[in-house]
Amino acid sequence: MKHLSEEELILVYYEEPDAPAMAQSHLSECAECRAAAGSLARELGFFDEWNAPAKGEDFGRDAWNRLAPALDSGREVGPGWRPVRIWAAMAGFAILLVAVFLAGRLSRPALPPVIAGLSDQARERILAIAVADHLDRVETLLTEISHDDSNAPDVFAADRERAEDLAQEGQLMKQSLALHGETATTGFLDDVDRFLIEAAHTPDRVGEKEIAELRQRIDSGSLLFKVRIVESNLRNEERKL
């Protein structure tokens, strides 16, 4: 008799439609699997007892009071809240890293002591980290565009905004790489940027056709695969440095 695997038991526990059809009848006949299912249920049951901190009845009203000023201005918020446009924040950090690199290249005599103390190797490592992280974010975006099953325009709107942020970030990366003489990586980032700009300029009411075309662009140029390879190479370079 073939017993149910843990994965099959999890599907049964959550009553997922793709749980094996024979699971229930097997459980009624097999004491071993019944015990395993009971053990799984007990252990997961402990997590039922774990809750988020309770919020008072005023939480919704407080949330609105803090949110309301931000609705018009887009990003201004009241005290106690930390507005974060995640992708923009990460881009900002990348820009800072690249600025450190550029500072070393362009204005060495006027560098602050901390930056001036960085060796060329340290700056090269910073650049490798910044570009690899940029490609990591690009990879996430490409993966999401490629694999979102919904084709929902409202979901794609977020992707469009991220593509725009990443395209801007990519411009800085290319400038820094060009200064460093990394023409091959710069050329590759040109390819990535063309896709990002295309994604960023899709219409507000993007339809399934436009999303399918973007996916076709990703697939036809093996863009996702190339991004992973270049990122991996940069990580290796970073480790060597």
């Binding site: 949330a63 949110l67 931000a70 887009g74 918020v77 930390r82 974060v84 709107a157 977020a158």
Partner: peptide, 17 residues
């Protein structure tokens, strides 16, 4: 709490979609 704010900001800007 930040994510609550982020969520509703995004929801407001995307309501028409």
């Amino acid at each position: 709490e930040d994510m609550v704010q982020e969520t509703f900001l995004r929801a407001w800007s995307e309501m028409r979609r």
